[in-house]
Lab assay of single mutants.
Amino acid sequence: CHSECLGNCSQPDDPTKCVACRNFYLDGRCVETCPPPYYHFQDWRCVNFSFCQDLHHKCKNSRRQGCHQYVIHNNKCIPECPSGYTMNSSNLLCTPCLGPCPKVCHLLEGEKTIDSVTSAQELRGCTVINGSLIINIRGGNNLAAELEANLGLIEEISGYLKIRRSYALVSLSFFRKLRLIRGETLEIGNYSFYALDNQNLRQLWDWSKHNLTITQGKLFFHYNPKLCLSEIHKMEEVSGTKGRQERNDIALKTNGDQASCENELLKFSYIRTSFDKILLRWEPYWPPDFRDLLGFMLFYKEAPYQNVTEFDGQDACGSNSWTVVDIDPPLRSNDPKSQNHPGWLMRGLKPWTQYAIFVKTLVTFSDERRTYGAKSDIIYVQTDATNPSVPLDPISVSNSSSQIILKWKPPSDPNGNITHYLVFWERQAEDSELFELDYCLKGLKLPSRTWSPPFESEDSQKHNQSEYEDSAGECCSCPKTDSQILKELEESSFRKTFEDYLHNVVFVPRKT
Rank of each mutant, 00 (worst) to 15 (best):
T113S: 13
L345A: 02
L293I: 04
N399S: 11
T353F: 04
E262N: 12
G217A: 03
I137A: 06
D312I: 13
T383W: 00
Q203A: 07
Y380H: 01
L298F: 11
E122S: 14
L252H: 04
I278K: 01
T371L: 12
I327N: 01
Q245H: 05
I278N: 00
W207L: 07
E283L: 06
I135F: 04
D326G: 07
W205T: 01
F296S: 13
K409S: 13
A385E: 07
L186D: 14
N307D: 04
F299L: 14
T215K: 05
A195F: 14
N399W: 07
V170A: 13
I379K: 10
R179H: 15
I278L: 08
G373T: 08
L280H: 00
P304S: 04
R202S: 12
G318L: 12
K177R: 10
P411A: 04
L186N: 04
R202Y: 12
I135C: 01
K360H: 01
G125W: 10
E122W: 14
I134W: 08
L362C: 01
I379W: 06
N340Y: 07
R179Y: 11
C261K: 03
S366H: 15
W207G: 03
A251D: 02
E302G: 15
R291A: 04
I357P: 00
W286Y: 04
W352N: 08
E156S: 07
G140E: 05
F174Q: 01
S376F: 00
S401G: 12
N224K: 00
K267A: 11
S173W: 08
G243M: 06
I379H: 06
F296D: 03
A316L: 11
W352F: 07
L349P: 01
T353G: 01
N255H: 03
W408M: 01
V390L: 05
W207H: 08
G348H: 04
F299R: 12
R291H: 03
D326K: 05
K301N: 13
T353P: 00
K209G: 09
T241I: 09
L133A: 02
F290D: 14
T254I: 14
T185M: 07
N150S: 10
G217R: 03
S208A: 14
K234P: 01
L212V: 12
G243T: 11
D326V: 02
C126L: 00
S402D: 10
D289A: 04
W344A: 13
N200L: 09
R164P: 06
E237K: 14
L143V: 14
D206R: 03
G183L: 01
N200Q: 09
A149W: 14
W352T: 10
D249F: 11
L151F: 09
W282M: 02
R281I: 00
S398K: 01
D292S: 08
A259F: 06
K209W: 10
V117C: 02
N320K: 04
K253S: 08
F193D: 01
T113M: 09
W322N: 02
Q314V: 10
P342F: 08
L294H: 13
N387R: 08
T361L: 03
K350P: 02
E156T: 12
E146K: 15
K234T: 14
L161Q: 01
V308H: 00
F299T: 08
E122Q: 04
L153H: 06
V128A: 12
L143H: 03
S192V: 11
S132F: 01
W286V: 04
A316E: 15
R247Q: 06
G110S: 10
E156I: 12
R370Y: 09
T127K: 14
K267M: 06
F299E: 13
V238G: 10
L279F: 08
G217V: 00
C261T: 11
S274W: 03
V325L: 12
Q199M: 08
N141F: 08
S338P: 10
A356I: 09
S208Y: 11
D312P: 12
L178Q: 00
L196D: 02
G189K: 03
S230P: 15
E187A: 05
S401F: 08
W207Y: 05
L123T: 03
R281H: 02
V324Y: 09
D115L: 02
T353S: 11
L293Q: 07
E146V: 04
K242R: 07
K162M: 03
D315E: 03
H341T: 14
S319V: 08
P288T: 10
L108K: 10
P329F: 02
K267R: 12
V381R: 15
Q306E: 11
I135L: 04
K209H: 15
L153W: 14
L196S: 06
D197I: 01
S400M: 08
K218T: 15
D257V: 14
R347Y: 11
I271D: 00
L204A: 14
L392I: 07
K360D: 02
S402L: 12
F296K: 00
L108I: 08
S389I: 01
R179Q: 05
S321K: 14
A385H: 11
W205C: 02
K242T: 06
P288D: 03
L294G: 12
K162H: 14
Q314E: 15
G131Y: 02
S158R: 10
L252E: 04
L265C: 06
Y300I: 14
Y191F: 04
Q354M: 00
G313D: 03
V170S: 07
S319P: 06
L123W: 12
R272V: 00
P330E: 09
I163S: 02
P288E: 14
N248P: 07
G217K: 04
I278G: 00
E302Q: 10
M346L: 11
S166Y: 02
A251S: 08
R138P: 13
A149I: 10
S166I: 09
F220M: 13
Y191K: 08
P388M: 00
T323V: 14
E310H: 13
G343H: 13
E155R: 15
I157V: 13
P336K: 04
A303R: 06
N211P: 09
Q354N: 09
T371W: 11
P410R: 07
T361Q: 14
I214T: 05
A259K: 13
E184Q: 08
N307G: 04
E264W: 12
T118P: 13
V397M: 12
K360I: 04
I271R: 02
K350M: 12
S171N: 10
V363A: 12
G343L: 01
A259E: 05
T309L: 15
N307P: 08
E302I: 08
L293C: 07
Q339E: 04
L266S: 01
L151A: 05
F290L: 03
A145I: 03
K301H: 04
E184F: 13
S230Y: 01
H341F: 13
Q199H: 04
R179M: 12
Q403M: 08
T386Q: 04
L345K: 05
N136I: 02
C317K: 01
G152M: 06
P304V: 04
N190Q: 09
N211C: 09
L172H: 00
N130A: 10
N200V: 06
I114H: 01
I188T: 14
I157M: 06
F358W: 11
I188R: 14
C261I: 06
P342G: 10
I357V: 12
K242L: 14
M297F: 01
T383H: 00
T323P: 01
E122A: 15
R332S: 09
A303E: 02
S396Y: 01
G217M: 01
G373P: 04
C228N: 08
Q382V: 09
G139C: 14
